[in-house]
Amino acid sequence: MSSTNPFLDPGWQADLYGDASRLASRSNALMRAKTSGRHVPDTIVQLVQTHHERADRLGVALDIGCGRGTSSRVIAEQLRPRSLLGLDAAPALIDKARERACRMPGVLVSFLQGDFHQLPLPTGSCDLAVAAFCLYHSLHPERVVAEIDRVLVPGGLAVLVTKSLDSYREIDQLVAAAGLDLRAERHESLYVSAHSGNIASLAAASLDVVTTEHEEHSFTFDGHDHIAEYLATNPKYDLAPGLYGNPGALAAALHEVLPDQLLTTRSVITFVVARSRGGCP
């Protein structure tokens, strides 16, 4: 890893998201380990149903930083807006989202490559905007929130989702104890730009915050082989040559120095629901 935060370094983006399989591998390893915490896309839907006055007749719903389209699909299936638009900066992820998108009568689902600092949508064109696990990829997340406010109709709803600064600290401890990266516990959090501690204030700069919910999610990896699948795609650490992207080599390195055992780690997931200040529709 470079000395800069890889989530905020443009030079890392091709490595992180140039191939959709990297994100899929990391997400799958993490989700297999999950032992507590609500399913995030379902929770987003529930928050919209609770707080949007027209949740049953949405026009345009925008999924910012849609990745491989996981949340987009759930939003389209459960909320059934007239139109669902997923937006991401990575062409490979947009291609995968298009492949995974299901055909649903009555819902126009489409995906677009774009920059969330300059959303390619008209002012006041969206009833709902979701930004889940993406704002920490911006050096200026407040600009993204201002853009969200711009594209929302008066009274439109935004749902912002992020993680705590100390997410997965137990993995940091394991990496340091194994000697894979002795500074693992001292690296800057990947989520420093937009995290559980500042996401509400970021939202409040442009939107009216309706509610903020914090929920601890727990994950238990069933041994070194499992944790290596996650570590191999995590750019946070300064790993020796040949280890990044190589779960087999990482697992072997862990087995060599530490007894194989379960590893439980945690992250606080924060949901902020906020409304455009233009007044109720």
Rank of each mutant, 00 (worst) to 15 (best):
M1G: 14
M1C: 13
S2L: 11
L8M: 05
P10R: 08
D15F: 04
L16Q: 04
G18Y: 08
D19L: 08
R22E: 09
R22G: 09
A24W: 03
N28P: 00
L30V: 03
M31T: 07
S36L: 12
V40A: 13
P41G: 13
P41A: 15
Q46V: 11
L47E: 14
A55V: 12
G59D: 12
A61V: 10
I64V: 13
G65N: 04
C66L: 07
T70P: 05
A76W: 02
L79S: 08
R80C: 10
L87I: 14
A92Q: 04
L93P: 04
L93Y: 01
K96R: 10
A97M: 09
R98V: 13
R100S: 15
R100N: 15
R103D: 14
F111R: 01
G114S: 09
H117K: 12
Q118W: 14
Q118K: 11
L119T: 13
L119R: 06
P122R: 10
A129D: 02
C134M: 06
L135R: 02
H137V: 03
L139I: 05
H140M: 02
P141D: 07
E147M: 13
E147Y: 07
E147I: 14
E147D: 13
L152E: 06
P154F: 06
V159T: 11
V159R: 14
L165M: 12
L165F: 10
E170Y: 03
D172K: 00
A178D: 00
R183V: 03
R183A: 13
R186W: 08
S193Q: 06
G197I: 09
L202E: 13
A204G: 04
H217Y: 00
S218Y: 06
F221E: 00
F221R: 00
I227L: 03
I227G: 02
L231H: 03
N234Y: 02
K236P: 00
P241R: 05
L243N: 06
N246I: 04
L250H: 00
A252R: 02
L258H: 11
P259V: 06
D260Q: 10
T270H: 03
V272R: 09
V273T: 15
A274M: 05
R277D: 02
R277E: 02
G278L: 09
G278I: 10
G278V: 04
